[in-house]
Computed example of a mutant assay.
Amino acid sequence: MSITFKKTYRFAVKSALYVTLFSTAFVGLLISIFFKAGNQELIRFCMIFAFCVAIFSFFVLQYRVERFIYRRVKKIYDDVSLLESSSFRKQPITTDMATLTRQVKKFATDKKLEIETLKIREEYRREFLGNVSHELKTPLFTVQGYLLTLLDGAMNDKTIRKKYLQRAEKGVERLIYIVQDLDMITKLEVGDLNLMTTKFDIVEVVQNVFDLLEMKASEKNIMLMFDMKYIKAIEVFGDREKIQQVVMNLMVNSIKYGKEDGTTEVSIEDLVNNKVIVRVMDNGEGIEKQHIPRLFERFYRVDKSGARSEGGSGLGLAIVKHIIEAHDEKIYVESKVNVGSEFSFTLEKAK
């Protein structure tokens, strides 16, 4: 921390002026009473006396007050510096009360914001750990239950043994799925997942996802379709594999929360600035407004019991958000309860 400090002379000048006026008037009065001096000599004496007293008073007051204030202000700076505020510690020490007040007020405001942010992060951390624990606990207990049953004698029955091993395998698969998603989102958040940007046809990618999810959609009799027939290819720039995962995750959610005999529709539209927007729309149950700001948080579920019965890691939308942001693009969501939801994201269009 610099030990130079801003000087303020207003206090010293005013104080020296008051001392000078009083001293000069008092001495002048004494001289006129006890030494019968002429007016000219008296005026000349008073002017010289006033000048000397003013200069002496100013320097004494300035020095003493600055040293007095500086010692106390420096203690404030030293105490504050213990809080590891690098921006505050770089400030030169000032004895100007207005400047000091502004600096301390700014420091207090920054600390208050920092404390509030830490509280929010702590709450998020507790919620995140609780969610991770719950997500991992369910398949682990499932696997453990089937294995313990087999060890207790059920393994002697070939039919039960095969059925329970298959169910245990599904539990392990869900664990692997959760761990893989956690690994991916961690890499995305720290920027450790490199994107392989190429030019590709987004229509073809969406059609591939349609083919992969056809059987899943048929279980609820949900129709997967484009909003129109795309005859020509629509080429965009991005990581084809990651963008396909984005479309896959959005459509899986659409099917998961879609109503029986419903639809999941995809549209691709041109935007300004050489962009396209991909929309994934459904006519499902919709999302209440208060849930929308938190949809892209890890493990956040609108309907916790219903969502877990449908399976999944609870990380799909968080992964979608990070992939789109890694492309420097935007993702949007609009939804109305009992009407449906629309998730959309932008991509750079190839020239």
Rank of each mutant, 00 (worst) to 15 (best):
K216I: 04
V209C: 08
T197C: 05
V190G: 02
K170F: 09
I176K: 12
I178N: 12
V179C: 07
M196Q: 12
Q180G: 02
V179Q: 11
L175I: 15
N194C: 01
M196V: 12
L213I: 09
V179G: 01
I176Y: 08
K216L: 14
G171I: 03
D192E: 15
N208C: 04
R174F: 01
T197R: 11
N208L: 10
N194Y: 08
L193F: 10
M215C: 01
G191D: 05
V206R: 03
A217R: 01
I202T: 04
N208V: 02
A168L: 08
L195Y: 09
E189V: 01
I202A: 07
D201T: 12
N208R: 13
Y177Q: 12
D192T: 09
D211A: 02
E189W: 00
Y177H: 10
M184L: 15
T197G: 00
L182H: 04
V205A: 13
M184N: 12
L188V: 04
I202W: 02
D181G: 09
K187S: 14
Q166K: 13
D192A: 15
L175N: 06
R167I: 10
K170C: 00
V203M: 06
D181K: 09
V179L: 15
A168N: 06
L212D: 14
N208Y: 06
A217Y: 03
F200V: 07
T197P: 01
R174W: 02
V205Y: 07
E214H: 12
F210S: 12
Y164D: 14
L213S: 12
Y164N: 14
E204D: 15
V203L: 10
L212P: 00
L188I: 04
D201I: 09
N194G: 00
L212T: 08
E169F: 07
L182T: 04
V203E: 09
L195H: 10
Y164L: 15
D192W: 11
D211S: 05
L165A: 03
L193I: 02
V209S: 07
V209H: 05
L182V: 06
I178T: 10
K216S: 11
D183I: 07
I185T: 14
V179R: 05
V206N: 05
Q166R: 11
I185G: 04
F210Q: 13
L182S: 11
L212E: 15
V179K: 09
T186I: 04
D181M: 07
K170R: 06
L212Q: 12
M196Y: 07
I202V: 15
T197F: 01
F210H: 10
Q166G: 11
D183R: 13
E204I: 00
A168Y: 02
D201K: 05
L193M: 08
A217C: 06
N194H: 09
K170V: 08
E204C: 01
E169G: 03
Y164F: 15
T197Q: 07
L188F: 04
L193Y: 14
E169W: 01
N208H: 10
E173K: 02
K187N: 14
M184K: 15
I202N: 06
D192G: 11
T198S: 15
F200T: 08
D181N: 15
A217Q: 04
V190L: 09
D211V: 06
I202G: 07
Y177K: 10
E173H: 02
V209F: 06
Q180H: 09
N208F: 02
F210Y: 14
D201R: 03
N194D: 13
E189G: 11
E189P: 00
L165D: 08
Y164P: 03
E173I: 03
E214C: 03
D181F: 00
E204M: 03
D211L: 02
